[in-house]
Structures are given as C-alpha cells and as structure tokens.
Amino acid sequence: MNEPPTGDDFYRAPELDLHRRPGELLHRRPVTTPDLPGAYRAWQLVYATRTSHKAPIPASGIVITAGPNAATDRAPILLYCPVFRGLGGDTAASQLLTRDESEPETEFISSALERGWTVAVPDGQGMGLTGLGPHAFLAGRAAAHAVLDLARATLRLPELIAAEAPCAAWGYADGGRAAAWAAELQPDYAPELDLRGIAAGAVIADPGRLAADMDGGPLAGLTLAGLIGLTRAYTHLPVTHLITAEGHRAIERAQTMTAAEVITTFEQVPLEAWCERPDPWNDPLWRYVLANKTAGRATPHARVHLYHGTEDTLVPVAMGRDLFTEYRTRGVDLSWREYSTGHAQTAIDGAREAVSRLASYLRSPRLTRPPFTQPLTN
C-alpha cells in the first residue's frame, strides 16, 4: 500500500490486539486549522474501532473546539460525516483541515462551530492511516463504527471535560449514509453515548440500487469504487470470485485514487468490463452483501431529520422517501424536507435547517427508544 504523500509517522497504522476497547485513544496531537472559521483548538486522533465484523482496527479523525469554554462547559459534540473522498489518496478530512488549502466541507463544519459545538470528523475506515486501504466505501456498519467510536474517543480526550456531553451526527450523501447507520447501530453498539439526533441528506440507503443506476454512465467509476469498498469490508467472503485478471488490475489502480480520479478514469466503463458476467450485482453472493448494506434495517432511538432534492440525479429522491417511510413505520421521531433542486444545491440549501434541527435535538431530553419498534429485518 502506498505511503501517504506527507510521509507523516503520525498516520502510520498501529497494530491492535483484541484487548483494545472501541473508542480507545491510541495517540493524538494538537494541530491548527488555518482556513476553518470559528475554530479554536484542534487535535488529530488515532483511535481504536471495529470493522464490519468487529475485528479491531485503528482509524483517524479530527476534533475541533469552538472556543475556550468548550473544555469546561461540556459543549455538545457534533459528529460531522464527510462525503465520499475516494478510496485512498491525500484527501482525509483530518489532514485537509490542517493545511492551507480548500477543505470542501468547511462551510458546514464552521456552521456547527458557530453554535459553540465541538466538532469531530471521522476519516472513515481505510482513509488517512497508512496501510489500511482501500476505504471501505458503502460499508454501512464500518462507517457507523468509525463515527460512534470517534464520539467515544472525543469524550475521553483529556483536554476536554466532555464525559457527559450530548452528541449529534450530520452528513450528506455518503456522509448521510454514515450518520443514518450510526443512529441505527448506536442502541446496541454504543448504548452509553447520549446521541440526541441526526441530520442526514440524500442518504445512499440502497447501494445496490444506486450501483445499477450508475453502471456504465458518467459516474460509473463510483460503481467500481463501491465494489472495491465492499470487497475490503467483506475480506472474509470470496467476493472477488467474479473479477477477471483485468478487473484485478483495474482495482489495483483505483484503490489509491481520490473520488475525482476514480470518476474521470473510469467514466462510462460498465462493471461487466471487469467481471465474468454482465450483471455482477445479481450474483447470489453479491445480493447477500448488498442486502446487508441497506439502511432502514434497525430502529434509531435518536431523533432523525432527513432531507433530499427532488431533482437529484445522483441519489434519487425516491430512495430518501423510502427510508423516511421505513423509519416512520418503526416509530422513529422523524422529520422530512424536500428541496426543488439537484444534488449539490440541496447540500447547501438544506444545511441551515439541518443545523437548526440538530440544535433543537441537542436541547431536548434524550430518547431511550421510539414509542414503538419493529424487529430487525433479515
């Protein structure tokens, strides 16, 4: 696996044993965030988390405080889940935020800092740290673990008095998927966390459905990225059985690429170019994998705000509506907003209400469970 362009020893992945607790701080260092309005102090973290199948693995992230009172006032913690950055490359949020260059989600992170919240941003499994890639793109359980364990690590930061601080999560697109999965898994995986609510926009709730829509089109590279990410998450299964020798070479090229590089390199190349059958997503093993990557299979106990653009050509609005319906049948404390715009503009237009909803959730008492629940579906 390629070394990070910075050659930074801080991001060399440590080996973990089974005794490491999820959320345990492995190491940290103070950093500055020169282009982040509203930031006061910040730390890059490496912490223990779990893969999709609960094997110990390190992950990286960054924690940013809004002012000098954050260490004494138990400021609420916002877990900000970034959009898909790539399978590798030099695009981890914890690294970009410390440089004099544009971090694509600065405005959203700053809007939370303006509220006086502490913001924790996970890089995601396989991003940031050396030797752990490719990023487990579309693996919902892995993403949720990275989010929830960063919350645990933040609460344990010695520089903060945060042990009783309430939390919320926010994300858009792939970040919305991570936030939604975090809310679904939190009652069982991290029941001690005081997760008051989430805001999730344009949630990729059904990766298999989205992959079929994208395959062979301008964003076909994201389909290949999804195959690579899920292959990484399911290393214990023979999920590469359909991939040809040429496909393995394409994967080797793609697994260190940024999102932009994946999209431009594999534009309009159908997945069948790398597989032994024209419809690999319909293979029984892949149907099993994708069925387990669908959001809405468990019940969040936190409040949920979902939003989506009616003109979204990347993540269809019907996918968001279906997730809203599923959560509603489970008795989740829920709100929904549609915007008459496309994918990118909805991220901007929906941010103000998302932050307002999160502020309301953080002021409200913690929900222990919804009014009624349904069992986990298979």
Score class of each variant (00 low, 15 high):
residue 201 G to A: 13
residue 244 T to A: 11
residue 278 P to Y: 04
residue 194 D to A: 12
residue 183 A to I: 08
residue 310 T to Y: 10
residue 224 L to G: 03
residue 275 C to F: 07
residue 290 L to E: 09
residue 222 L to T: 12
residue 289 V to K: 02
residue 242 L to C: 05
residue 228 I to Q: 03
residue 216 G to H: 10
residue 234 Y to N: 14
residue 234 Y to R: 09
residue 252 E to Y: 03
residue 233 A to Y: 01
residue 210 L to I: 03
residue 235 T to C: 09
residue 212 A to F: 11
residue 217 G to M: 02
residue 297 R to G: 11
residue 272 E to S: 14
residue 245 A to D: 11
residue 272 E to F: 02
residue 230 L to R: 01
residue 256 T to L: 04
residue 290 L to I: 07
residue 214 M to P: 00
residue 249 R to C: 02
residue 246 E to T: 12
residue 185 L to C: 06
residue 229 G to D: 05
residue 236 H to W: 05
residue 204 I to A: 15
residue 202 A to S: 15
residue 303 R to E: 02
residue 261 E to Y: 14
residue 303 R to F: 02
residue 287 R to H: 06
residue 192 E to P: 07
residue 303 R to C: 05
residue 298 A to F: 13
residue 266 F to H: 04
residue 282 N to A: 15
residue 275 C to T: 10
residue 215 D to I: 12
residue 215 D to K: 11
residue 280 P to H: 04
residue 218 P to G: 01
residue 309 G to W: 06
residue 259 A to P: 00
residue 255 Q to E: 08
residue 245 A to Q: 13
residue 306 L to S: 05
residue 305 H to G: 04
residue 237 L to G: 00
residue 298 A to T: 01
residue 298 A to V: 01
residue 271 L to Y: 04
residue 209 R to C: 04
residue 220 A to H: 06
residue 177 R to S: 05
residue 235 T to Y: 09
residue 303 R to W: 01
residue 233 A to Q: 01
residue 254 A to W: 07
residue 235 T to I: 12
residue 184 E to L: 12
residue 282 N to I: 06
residue 210 L to V: 00
residue 286 W to P: 00
residue 251 I to F: 05
residue 201 G to D: 10
residue 224 L to N: 07
residue 261 E to S: 09
residue 180 A to R: 09
residue 190 A to D: 04
residue 254 A to C: 13
residue 274 W to P: 01
residue 253 R to D: 06
residue 236 H to G: 05
residue 262 V to R: 15
residue 230 L to I: 03
residue 293 K to G: 07
residue 307 Y to H: 11
residue 289 V to N: 00
residue 263 I to K: 15
residue 245 A to S: 10
residue 288 Y to I: 11
residue 192 E to W: 06
residue 291 A to S: 12
residue 190 A to Q: 05
residue 185 L to V: 05
residue 268 Q to G: 15
residue 257 M to A: 08
residue 199 A to E: 10
residue 266 F to Y: 15
residue 212 A to E: 13
residue 299 T to W: 07
residue 283 D to Q: 09
residue 264 T to N: 14
residue 229 G to L: 02
residue 188 D to L: 07
residue 224 L to F: 08
residue 253 R to E: 12
residue 280 P to S: 10
residue 307 Y to N: 06
residue 264 T to H: 14
residue 299 T to R: 04
residue 186 Q to R: 09
residue 278 P to V: 00
residue 252 E to F: 03
residue 290 L to W: 13
residue 313 T to N: 10
residue 262 V to F: 14
residue 275 C to S: 08
residue 296 G to T: 10
residue 245 A to M: 09
residue 221 G to L: 03
residue 190 A to K: 09
residue 291 A to G: 15
residue 181 W to A: 05
